[in-house]
Design a protein around this nucleic acid. Structure first.
Length: 117
DNA sequence: CGTATGACTTTTA
DNA sequence: GTAAAAGCCATAC
């Protein structure tokens, strides 16, 4: 549990940084579900910050509690990360019961996590 | 404080 | 179906 934010805060900001909010939102994605950078960015206020969502993911340390693999690009496609990361992500997604084919999540729309906004 | 960068999205051709 | 360009904004140096 995070400390209760002040009622005057516009949103539940867990940290002073932008990354903290991204990590918090990604951490709210339940297993078996995925979300997109744009959705997270939109939930943060603007869709244009989608790049920063990925930036925040890249800044995630190994062993982080943030399920970065549940975050995919628009259309359920894997992000432009290193091919190694893409493969790792697809592997992890499959472990969650999802189906990744040709760098895309099959039935992505049906398992896309709604609740960020 | 200014410059450079980047795991994106969307539109247009 | 693919290709290219513009938009946008936080973090790092």
């Amino acid at each position: 549990m995070r400390s209760a934010p002040e009622p005057g805060s516009p949103q539940r900001i867990v940290g002073p940084g932008f990354h903290a909010r991204v990590h918090a939102l990604v951490a709210t994605v339940p297993p078996g579900f995925v979300t997109t950078y744009g959705d997270v960015a939109k939930a943060l206020g603007s869709r244009n910050v989608a790049r920063h969502v990925g930036f925040a993911m890249a800044a995630l340390p190994p062993g982080s509690d943030v399920p970065w693999w549940r975050v995919v690009a628009a259309g359920g496609r894997l992000a432009m990360a290193s091919a190694l990361v893409q493969r790792e992500q697809g592997k992890r997604l499959r472990a969650e019961g999802l189906v990744v084919k040709n760098g895309r999540v099959v039935g992505f729309a049906a398992m896309r996590f709604l609740g960020l906004g």
